[in-house]
Amino acid sequence: MIVAERKPLEQISSMIESNNKILIVGCGECVTVCSAGRKKEVEILASALNMVRSKEGKPVEIRQETLERQCDGEYLEQLRGFIGEYEVVISMACGAGVQFMAEKYKNSLVLPALNTKFIGVTEEQGVWSERCHACGDCKLHLTGGVCPIARCSKSLLNGPCGGSANGKCEISPDLVCGWQLIIERLSDLGQLEKYEEIIPINNWSTNRDGGPRKVVREDLRL
């Protein structure tokens, strides 16, 4: 899932300083799973902003909505009937949701309430961590299912580097070395011979180096 985190309240309230009629829109997908932009967080943000503004003596009118998801036009359409009544829209979706809403509603000012962090997993309730950089050329079959791009701090394809000590990365004693994980995993799988293969220089054109990316499935298009 895409993992996100709410921006500091001060930053959000400064974005809407001069607005009095606000729509807050949550998203029912990834940010619901990582508890950043689900219905509950929409309620909390609305309540918090209400209090900030009441305290300043500038009360604000807030409507709350939570869509199934904000990265699909059909769900964004549900706002069509009333979005125009609001001076500003605060989206509690990831960066993709915020942008797609702004694209669909050209006359509405759409603002982000979250900082989109990474593609990751739920390690345990309340703890999420990064697993994928969306580099566009998956190498997990070579590395025992542990991604060298996302899990190695330097994204090395042939590691570990000299900064790996006692299985930890040099950037933090709490961070396990990605290549340590790869070697352990290959060893457990009895595939350590794969570690001896040199992975060639990465083709970063499938990553952001190739500009904004797009996937087209002609067979699915209408």
């Binding site: 509950k40 909390i44 309540s47 209400n50 209090m51």
Partner: peptide
């Protein structure tokens, strides 16, 4: 008791 209940009391 959830966060929103506590906030609403203050609100």
């Amino acid at each position: 008791v959830d966060v929103i209940h506590l906030l609403q009391a203050f609100e």
